[in-house]
Design a protein around this nucleic acid. Structure first.
Length: 595
RNA sequence: GCACCGGUGGUCUAAUGGCAAGACUUUGGCCUUCCAAGCCAAUAAUCUGGGUUCGAUUCCCAGCCGGUGCACCA
């Protein structure tokens, strides 16, 4: 037992107890896809609900639900098409993989090797006599492989419209921004969330549900005015966090920085206040759902890891089996995403921001006489008009001369200044269009679930016997409570237990009824799936004149208290909602000491 | 994708070129006791395909799945 790693024991338990298992096993299985069993589906759904509550409801944000398939142009705009279309060539000697396009570009005057087909790239490599940069072996004859991490599909019959399964949920939000901003009444800041599946055709899925080809993300896109909006840090400034900044990672004796969100933002460790705000929110949220804070940190991206548009990015990481796994990313993305879509799509991805006072500005304008330009320039007239408008904005002085010259498609056109109707007009501007900046907290739901299970996995000894239990937080545990009659051959006990099951289910709790085998066995069963409480109906609770009582047993400690039947639903709900703890309940009622 | 190792009931293991064994779990029955240990019974497995062989779960090859390392993770 001791030799098996945490991950192996977890995988075994997950399979046996219905948390998750490899999909399509009946057909040999398929790498990178997992099915959540009854417990896992409930746990995951509880995690998603908890995330929704914190990042959508409590923040006053909007949630949308976009399709998982989107047409090709979306990913042309987002950069995923190019970004994923890497050509790799592998060295036969040392096994190292290299970007084929980069190798060719570095060793020839070709600038756009990315546009080559894989066959052409392989030919170039042979022609240029390229060798492996790692070991120097000849790369000629090695096949060049196309790497597209997006799943491609066809939309509709035939194959006219190419589509892709989204590699992240975020694009669904960015693409719909022009309409969503209307729902936000064009006022920044506002946040949009989405919880859903995303797909990446990973080369090598690993580590059970940590790296899969289909996974669930919970993402928030916070749209802010970069010049005006500041987060309200007051609610998180005292939150304590363990930071691992880039410079500490690079230092020989690099160490963590234990600080508070307020101090980290003030000291500039976390450069962006919005990022800092969400780190604080996330820290508290992770704690609440049961992440072990001693095995949790925020790690800053190293300069080399940063996407070129991102000025600061932090990952939330949890420790499992000595490895740190990324469970969320907090990225300042500037206006990159919306600007990209604005370039490619025919919609307005800006928000109109009104000035405090309308401004009067002088603006140079032209109103060319097309009845002259048309006959004179023919088909180029339209282009000339546009060029004149641009010129008036950029260089109004040019219109002081009798004649202005503009270039359209390489041709020069001279226009009589009178014909342009150049004028400097006073205009009233009430505001301006701004492209919002984006702060993106992006959570991996599956990895969060994995972390919760790994951090909840406990083994201890009760009466010299080994016990395995999942110390899951009541807020996310798949089952809220188990209900047992102490023995199954006493009708009174069974009847009352069944009544309690009905009552608790009516109250919205997830209840598991069990009357088979010894009571200890039933407790163990629930311990292993992580049910936080078990209610046992015994004779003692039915005797005497006072109200009927049953015992509630707490999973981690095994402590029991005797609680009136009428109080059960309210007590259990309050614990699930984090309003009370078992200790509060224990203090209020009589503790059972036999056992 | 490469390399190495592995793949037997739900789970963990055993064994075997000739009827595949055990433990735990599960289910039914008995029992009735607050922490998996009682009794009886039942269900349930050799990853897939090809080859060698009279016969393959076993040996060989390929694939699939899993673990580890490398690479990859925009």
């Amino acid at each position: 037992m001791a030799e098996r790693t945490e991950g192996e024991r977890l995988t075994e338990l997950a399979k046996r107890r219905g948390y998750y298992f490899g999909s399509s096993d009946a057909y040999g299985g398929v790498a990178g896809f997992y099915t959540y069993g009854p417990q896992g589906a409930a746990l995951k759904s509880n995690v998603e609900d908890a995330w929704r509550d914190r990042f959508a409801v409590q923040e006053g944000n909007m949630e949308i639900d976009a399709p998982t398939i989107m047409p090709e142009p979306v990913f042309e705009a987002s950069g995923h098409l190019d970004g994923f279309d890497d050509m790799l060539v592998e060295c036969a000697e040392c096994g190292e993989s290299h970007r084929a396009d980069h190798l060719i570009e570095d060793n020839s005057d070709l600038e756009d090797a990315e546009t080559l087909s894989v066959e052409e790239a392989a030919e170039r490599i042979a022609d240029l006599g390229l060798v492996c940069p790692n070991c120097g072996a000849d790369l000629a004859g090695q096949s060049v492989e196309d790497f597209n991490l997006m799943f491609e599909t066809n939309i509709g019959p035939g194959s006219s419209t190419a589509g892709y399964l989204r590699p992240e949920t975020a694009q669904g939000i960015f693409v719909e921004f022009p309409r969503i901003k209307e729902y936000a009444r064009n006022r920044l800041p506002f946040g949009v969330t989405q919880v859903g599946r995303a797909y990446r055709n990973e080369i090598s899925p690993r580590k059970s549900i940590v790296r899969t080809r289909e996974f669930t993300q919970a993402e928030l896109e916070q749209f802010v005015d970069p010049e005006r909006d500041e987060p309200d840090l007051s609610s998180v400034e005292d939150v304590e966090v363990l930071l691992y900044p880039a410079d500490e990672q690079q230092a020989d004796d690099g160490d963590y920085v234990e600080t508070t969100i307020g101090a980290a933002v003030e000291d500039g460790i976390v450069a962006n206040a919005w990022v800092g705000y969400f780190l604080g929110v996330a820290q508290e949220w992770y704690e609440r759902i049961g992440v072990d804070v001693d095995r949790f940190r925020f790690r800053q991206h190293l300069p080399g890891e940063l996407a070129h548009y991102s000025s600061d990015c932090w990952d939330a990481e949890s420790e499992v089996d000595g490895d740190w796994i990324e469970i969320a990313g907090f990225s300042y993305r500037s206006d990159y995403d919306l600007s990209k879509h604005a370039e490619h799509a025919d919609e307005d991805f800006t928000v109109f921001r009104q000035y405090d006072e309308p401004k009067t500005v002088e603006r140079a304008v032209v109103d060319p006489d097309m009845s002259v330009l048309g006959p004179e320039f023919g088909g180029a007239a339209g282009g000339v008009k546009q060029a004149l408008e641009t010129l008036a904005e950029r260089d109004p002085d040019a219109f002081d001369a009798d004649e202005v010259t503009v270039e359209v498609d390489g041709e020069s056109y001279a226009v009589d200044t009178d014909v342009t109707n150049f004028a400097v007009e006073e205009q009233t501007e009430s505001g301006e269009h701004v492209t919002p900046h984006v702060v993106e907290p992006s959570f991996g739901v599956d990895r969060t679930v994995y972390t919760l299970l790994a951090h909840a996995y406990e083994e201890d000894e009760v009466d010299d016997e080994e016990r395995t239990y999942l110390s899951l937080a009541p807020a996310v545990a798949p089952r809220d409570v188990g209900v047992f009659p102490l023995v199954s051959n006493v009708d009174e006990l069974v009847d009352l237990a069944e009544d309690i099951v009905d009552d608790l289910r009516t109250a919205g709790l997830s209840v598991f009824y069990d009357d088979s085998g010894s009571i200890g066995r039933r407790y163990r069963r629930q311990d292993e799936v992580g049910t936080p409480f078990c209610i046992t109906v015994d004779r003692d609770g039915l005797e005497g004149d006072s109200e009927t009582t049953v015992t509630i047993r707490e999973r981690d400690s095994g402590r029991q208290v005797r609680v009136p039947v009428d109080a059960l639903a309210a007590e259990l709900e309050s614990v699930r909602a984090d309003d009370r703890t078992f200790a509060d309940i224990a203090a209020e009622y009589e503790e059972v000491t036999n056992a």
